[in-house]
Design a protein around this nucleic acid. Sequence first.
DNA 1: ATTGGTTGTCCAGACAATTAGACAACATGG
DNA 2: CCATGTTGTCTAATTGTCTGGACAACCAAT
Lengths: 247, 247
Amino acid sequence: MSPFEDGVARWRRVADEIRSAIGEGAIVDVLPSEVDLAERYGVNRHTVRRAIASLAAEGLLRAERGRGTFVSAAPKRAVYPIGPRTRFSESMLKQSLEPSGRLIRSERVVADTVLAGLLELRPGAPLHRLDSLSVVSGMPMSRSVSHFSAERFPGIIDAYAETGSITAALAREGVTDYRRRETRLTAERVTTKDADLLSCAPDAIVLISTAVDVDLEDRPIQSIRTKFLADRMELVLGPPDQSASGL
Amino acid sequence: MSPFEDGVARWRRVADEIRSAIGEGAIVDVLPSEVDLAERYGVNRHTVRRAIASLAAEGLLRAERGRGTFVSAAPKRAVYPIGPRTRFSESMLKQSLEPSGRLIRSERVVADTVLAGLLELRPGAPLHRLDSLSVVSGMPMSRSVSHFSAERFPGIIDAYAETGSITAALAREGVTDYRRRETRLTAERVTTKDADLLSCAPDAIVLISTAVDVDLEDRPIQSIRTKFLADRMELVLGPPDQSASGL
DNA sequence: ATTGGTTGTCCAGACAATTAGACAACATGG
DNA sequence: CCATGTTGTCTAATTGTCTGGACAACCAAT
């Protein structure tokens, strides 16, 4: 059999399986020996070693010569409750995390048929495209692309650049309250460009949320497409009890 | 620079980017020429060709000699509305899809502290562990691991094996209605074992949903952890309007 | 001190990935 | 017809992956 087959190196697949095993609690404190792992995954010991080296570089494992290899810390994900009254900054503050938003790029575009449908505007209507990055306690968390009506919110870009919060920026534009109408969720591999912005592994996974926010009269305010780094975030739906992330 | 860097082949990364570009609507009908793509992604033309070959094998692209390369069909994801009244089989039927569940494995286990907490049982309580696969119109969609109290639902395994639906199985055990209390969402790479069961690429991505269902008296019924194939499913929260999946 | 089990390092070979260049086969528009 | 641009195929050379084997260094018991 060929070492590859689908463009993913064996050592990386082994690394992924070990990471999963740790995440699921199948491996708790100490790893099986390199020889055992090699046999279990059907690869050479060197391949296992490379996988372990990769995980050690992530800070997940710690190898000690003559003793064994140990898991150093189960990484905890930040929790993001998502529902009709979803507010990113508020959620992070409740977890004693420091949210901040950074403007990556802004642009004036015109609405295509899809965006026009979502925002209930005519195709060709002028829009503000807001490309932003959310950083929580120094760690990049997500990357969003929002679209606003340029006619209704002429100063939204500047307001966001100053406040770093969409809720705050909307308040300046006269929107005191809003709610989420619908959220669609899926997941994909991160693109290389996003990987740079989010400073994550080039093959990390992002949860993709596509949503429309509406004001109290149910008129669309913004269409927002957000990519959350899956290994740093956990989305929670349901009653707002803020228990710690377990599994 | 090395062909690899992180265990992912270049052609694979190019393939992923092209797939994303199609998913986001950046590439609509016809691909740029191989030479253009090679320049854009900074790789050799042969590498682009391999990426295209991989996507063509998936059925996403169709290359025609002398003319160009075209996207054959925007793959539509099955939509799964998720909320308090979430029912997998019903949702699929509404989309004219044929759901069926298959029992992979069942087992009697005892509750650890985490499961006991979720199900509000004492640690050590006997549980049924139900390991199942959901197939929709012949396509494996998700893989679930459920835990039920063995004392309260002694026949749940047999009931599921016969009906292929958890809702139907619970009805046989006397639970006429139930609702979802909380759902936690994240995403990971699929494990090789799950990749076999789901018959998908060995490095596909799964949306992981961890939830607890409760009866009308708010007593926990089951804890369920489901892995949805992200490229075949889209989770939707919010008002139940069943519009087609349009990113 | 010895023994057994562990991680760390080195060498070498077989195979895959990537690059480069050149040319063939085909389609389209002038 | 012909010029241009496209995908398909081939050879070759370079670099990285994976495997196999061997040995060193280290730890924890006996």
